[in-house]
């Protein structure tokens, strides 16, 4: 029972039912590895990837950089693109912003 002059109300906030997944560990060293970039098509992400690719090769000895673009910024990447990145890369970084 509520005390007098009190009202009982319900929280409108939803709850998550998902299970927790373990994120795959990053490679311990990037030397000789292939790094993938999933481009969200937003302006300048392509230039950021180009700049990062140079730095990754120079500083980490990264072997190769794979750069793939989504069709547009607001829809998920096509399964073929994800499959290609998963096959070719040791680590994939996706753009998520303006």
């Amino acid at each position: 029972m509520s005390p007098p002059d009190c009202i009982r109300v319900l929280s409108p906030v939803g709850e998550v039912r998902r299970r927790v997944l373990t994120a795959p560990a990053l490679p311990p060293d990037l030397r000789g590895k292939t790094i993938g970039f999933l481009d969200n098509t937003k302006p300048n992400f392509d230039k950021l990837v180009a700049e990062m690719a140079g730095l990754l090769r120079e500083r980490f000895g990264v072997k190769a950089v794979v750069h793939r673009r989504k069709a547009n910024a607001s829809t998920p990447a096509a399964p073929e693109i994800l499959a290609e990145l998963a096959k070719a890369c040791d680590l994939v970084l996706a753009g998520s912003a303006d």
């Binding site: 795959p24 990447a77 990145l85 994939v92 970084l93 996706a94 753009g95 998520s96």
Partner: peptide, 17 residues
């Protein structure tokens, strides 16, 4: 989706996002 499939993956976002 990549991470769920076992490929190490991460995100790049600006601080606002």
């Amino acid at each position: 989706e990549l991470a769920k499939g076992g490929t190490p993956a991460g995100l790049i976002a600006t601080v606002t996002f």
